[in-house]
């Protein structure tokens, strides 16, 4: 394993993490809920009365974040695959998997570990290992 020092961004990543943590903290203290994105979205697909507004508002805030960021700084360059089959396959896996596993990087990874939930620790380790293995297979075995 070699560390890619050229692309390593310790300070901005730490600062980004602090903002994420602040968002999760304010959200649980004010709204009494977990800032878990797959859960927020999943609840919108099974709408219940009185449980829709805050979800729509949270997602709207996320969608407007690039615009708000652009007011103060240049958006960082994002490189992503444009291969439709890969995007659809990966999207299906992420959607189905996060609902089956009851959480994603935010709900289990950030909020769950912050509240010391053993389930979330197990889920986080599992999806990290699965992600490591997938990238290893794609880049170093089947490449």
């Amino acid at each position: 394993m070699t560390i890619d020092w050229q692309h390593f961004t310790p300070w901005t990543s730490l600062a980004g993490g602090v903002l994420l943590g602040l968002s999760a903290a304010v959200f649980v203290l004010l709204n009494g809920r977990i800032a878990g994105i797959s859960g927020v979205l999943g609840g919108l697909l099974q709408p219940r009365r009185g449980d829709v507004d805050w979800r729509v508002a949270f997602v709207a805030g996320m969608l407007l974040a690039p615009l708000a960021y652009g007011l103060f700084a240049t958006l960082p360059v994002a490189r992503m695959s444009t291969e439709a089959t890969l995007l659809v396959g990966a999207g299906l896996l992420v959607g189905f998997g996060t609902r089956l596993g009851a959480g994603c990087t935010s709900g289990h990874g950030v909020c769950g570990i912050s509240r010391l939930a053993p389930r979330s620790l197990v889920a986080t380790l599992t999806f990290m290992v699965s992600g490591f293995l997938t990238v290893y297979l794609v880049r170093h075995v089947f490449a």
């Binding site: 994105i37 797959s38 979205l41 997602v59 996320m62 969608l63 407007l64 974040a65 690039p66 615009l67 994002a78 992503m80 695959s81 890969l86 995007l87 396959g89 990966a90 999207g91 299906l92 896996l93 992420v94 959607g95 189905f96 998997g97 996060t98 609902r99 089956l100 596993g101 009851a102 994603c104 990087t105 935010s106 289990h108 389930r119 197990v122 889920a123 986080t124 599992t126 999806f127 990290m128 290992v129 699965s130 992600g131 490591f132 293995l133 997938t134 990238v135 794609v138």
Partner: peptide, 28 residues
């Protein structure tokens, strides 16, 4: 299902580099 779901999610995350939050923000 907690483990199985997390395995599937991790695979999709590795394939595209997107998890739910960043995907929504990038949609923006």
């Amino acid at each position: 299902r907690l483990i199985g779901g997390s395995v599937l999610f991790g695979a999709g995350w590795g394939l595209a580099g997107f998890c739910p939050g960043p995907a929504i923000v990038t949609l923006g």
